[in-house]
Simulated scan of single mutants.
Amino acid sequence: MTIYVGNLSFDAEVEDLQHLFSEYGSVSKCSLPLDRETGRKRGFAFVDMADANAENKAISDLQDVEWMGRSIRVNKAEPRPTPSFSNSRW
C-alpha cells in the first residue's frame, strides 16, 4: 500500500518524510515528484511502509496535522486511472 501525502511544504525533503513516517514503522520507499518543466517540488509525496498496520496508523494519526507549517493530507494513494480510448477515432 502506498500513502499519498498532500499539501506539503516546498521545504520538505525525502529525509524529513522518512523521519516523520519512521515513527510508525519501517519506511521502504519515499518519493517527492518534481515538476517536469521547472524541476521544482510539486507539493505532494508518496510513502511506502513495510507493514500495513503501520501505514494505517500513520494515515490515521497524521491526517490534517500541521507539519512544517502546513496542514498535511494523508491517505491511501489511488492508482492512476488508465486512459480510455473509447472515444478515439483510431
Rank of each mutant, 00 (worst) to 15 (best):
T2W: 11
I3Q: 02
V5A: 00
V5F: 01
L8C: 05
L8V: 05
F10E: 12
D11I: 01
D11E: 15
D11Q: 08
A12Y: 00
A12Q: 00
V14Y: 03
V14H: 03
E15C: 08
E15G: 07
D16M: 01
Q18R: 07
S22V: 00
Y24C: 04
Y24M: 02
S28C: 01
K29I: 04
K29D: 15
S31E: 14
P33C: 00
L34A: 03
D35I: 01
E37I: 03
E37Q: 13
G39Q: 12
G39P: 06
R42A: 02
R42Q: 15
F44M: 03
F44T: 06
V47N: 01
D48Y: 06
M49K: 07
A50L: 05
D51G: 05
D51H: 08
D51F: 08
A52S: 11
N53A: 14
E55G: 13
A58Y: 10
I59E: 07
S60C: 11
S60Y: 09
S60W: 04
S60N: 09
D61K: 09
D61N: 13
L62C: 05
D64L: 08
E66L: 02
W67K: 04
S71F: 11
S71H: 14
V74Q: 07
N75P: 03
N75V: 12
K76Q: 14
K76L: 15
K76S: 13
A77G: 07
E78N: 12
E78Q: 15
R80A: 01
P81G: 01
T82G: 04
S84E: 09
S84Y: 05
F85N: 08
S86V: 15
S86H: 11
N87E: 06
N87C: 03
S88T: 04
W90P: 08
